[in-house]
Structure formats: C-alpha cells, structure tokens
C-alpha cells in the first residue's frame, strides 16, 4: 500500500482467540476490544465504568498480560490469546480466585470483579506468593466502590494458598470480625 492510500473504514473480518476458542467477527476498524467482546461476541462479563482507562473495570488478559480493553484496538489483538472472565472457570469448576471471591463476598455488586480477578490471575502467574503489599500494588489499577478492597486481598491470598496446594480456610476474623 502506498503511504497515501487509506485502509478501509468499513467492517473487516477478523479472527480472535478468546478463552481458547477461535471466533470470527466482522467489525469496524475503529472498534475497541471492549466493544467487540461485549457487542459482537456477547461476552458481557467484561464491564466498563469510564471507557477512558480510569477505572480498571474492563481489564482482560492479552497473552497473559492484564490490559484495559477500552483502550485496546481490537485489530491489535487479533491472533493474541485473549482471556475474559467467561474463560476463567474450567468446565464449570470455578478458578480458586472466583471461588474465594464468592466465598468471602469479595464480589459485592460484582461489577469490578472480572477486572480484579483477571489482574489477580496475572499476578499469581508471576508471583505465586505475593505479600499483601504486592497484591495492593498489582491491583492498584482497579477501582472498587463496594468492598474497601479488604475481602479482595483476603480472597487473593487464599486463592494463592490454594494454588500452592496449602491449607486455605478463611479466618474467623475475616468472616465474623474479631
């Protein structure tokens, strides 16, 4: 293509690898991954709270790296391994993060949860035994207005233990207070 020629602005056919499945989508070139996931692939578990990169609700994993789908052009991730919340459970069995988010009520309204769990999953892949401060930093790009983050930290810590094969019972302080 010569530099002056303009690529088409009409829909093009793309192929995505989402949660291990190949999906073909015809979409307009200016669409973000968020739009394609939610509106073309019906994967509405990925949420949006600002569409400007200011809240973290739309976090997904691209080749294992947590990124914001609202600022990622869909075209840029064709061929990459995309993971959304819908792909986190394995044949109906909850991922330990999902299990403990459910167990502790780390998911209150649940709107930010997919972003938090995917960011946490990426953290645990890199660092199987994160300290509370490391969790705090890794999740500092995700806002939650319900939980005060306390139950989220605890859920991530328990999921990490479970993934390490260690005992992982919630403490009484966590579920009943002191």
């Amino acid at each position: 293509m010569s530099p002056r020629e303009a690529p088409d602005r009409r829909k093009t056919l793309g192929e995505f690898r989402v949660n291990g499945e190949r999906r073909e989508v015809a979409y307009e070139p200016h669409r973000t991954l968020l739009e394609v996931l939610r509106e073309d692939l019906d994967l509405t578990g990925t949420k949006h709270g600002c569409e400007l990169g200011e809240c973290g609700a739309c976090t997904v994993l691209v080749d294992g790296v947590p990124v914001l789908s609202c600022l990622t052009l869909a075209q840029e991730v064709e061929g990459c391994a995309i993971e959304t919340i819908e792909g986190m459970a394995d044949k109906g069995e909850l991922h330990p993060l999902q299990d403990f988010f459910a167990e502790l009520g780390a998911s209150q309204c649940g709107y930010c949860s997919s972003g938090f769990m995917l960011a946490s999953k990426a953290l645990l892949a890199q660092n199987p035994s994160p300290s509370r401060d490391e969790i705090r930093v890794a999740l500092s790009g995700n806002l939650c207005r319900c939980t005060g983050y306390v139950k989220i930290y605890e859920a991530v810590e328990l999921a990490a233990k479970k993934l390490r094969g260690e005992p992982c019972e919630p403490s009484r302080e966590c579920t009943h207070g002191r």
Partner: peptide
C-alpha cells in the same frame, strides 16, 4: 455469588 464471579 457464582453468577457474579463468572461474569454471568
């Protein structure tokens, strides 16, 4: 809880 943590 299950629906909320699975995006459903």
């Amino acid at each position: 809880a299950r629906a909320r943590v699975t995006g459903q």
